[in-house]
């Protein structure tokens, strides 16, 4: 288990150091003080395995997003439809946020809404005369 406070501290300190780009002691102390003073959101701690899986998913999403963009550039995606994806049970709110982030980051899919146990995903796809698509098209 990672204590949530450590994660928040690292994130805030990283942003502070990137913004000021000054590694001197006094600046480091200032950033640390601000990171500690900012109110921390209460959250349950997340298992390390879940974090690592999420991290690899986020890192993989970046090349995947560019791949999808080139695919859309070469082959026009004109059909729109809405699909539902189940949320794994016992998901903490941070992991749900990251899920929504990864799905929306890839250009073919956007999360429209998060319901209790599934995500509502809007999707673009290439023109194909699939009969299963027609029901969804009339909704749009």
């Amino acid at each position: 288990m990672i204590k949530p406070i450590v994660g928040h501290l690292i994130l805030r300190l990283t942003i502070w150091l990137l913004l000021t780009s000054d590694l001197s002691g006094i600046n480091l102390a200032m950033g640390l003080a601000i990171a500690l003073l900012l109110p921390r959101p209460d959250g349950r701690s997340i298992a390390v395995g879940d974090w690592l899986r999420m991290l690899s998913k986020i890192l993989w999403a970046i090349p995947l997003a560019y791949l999808e963009a080139f695919e859309m550039l070469l082959r026009p995606h004109t059909q729109e439809d809405i699909v539902l994806e189940r949320v794994p049970p016992q998901r903490s709110s941070q992991l749900i946020f990251l899920d929504v982030f990864v799905i929306t980051f890839t250009p073919k899919t956007i999360v429209l809404r998060y319901r209790q146990d599934y995500y509502e995903i809007h999707r673009l796809r290439p023109r194909r005369t699939g009969r299963e698509l027609e029901g969804h098209e009339s909704e749009e």
Partner: peptide, 24 residues
């Protein structure tokens, strides 16, 4: 690099979240 890395991170996060909020 510190400024540009920060720009890349904030761009990715904020634009994606804005996309979700606008869609919603």
């Amino acid at each position: 690099w510190p400024l540009l890395v920060l720009a890349i991170i904030s761009l990715a996060i904020w634009n994606t979240v804005l996309g979700y909020v606008l869609a919603y």
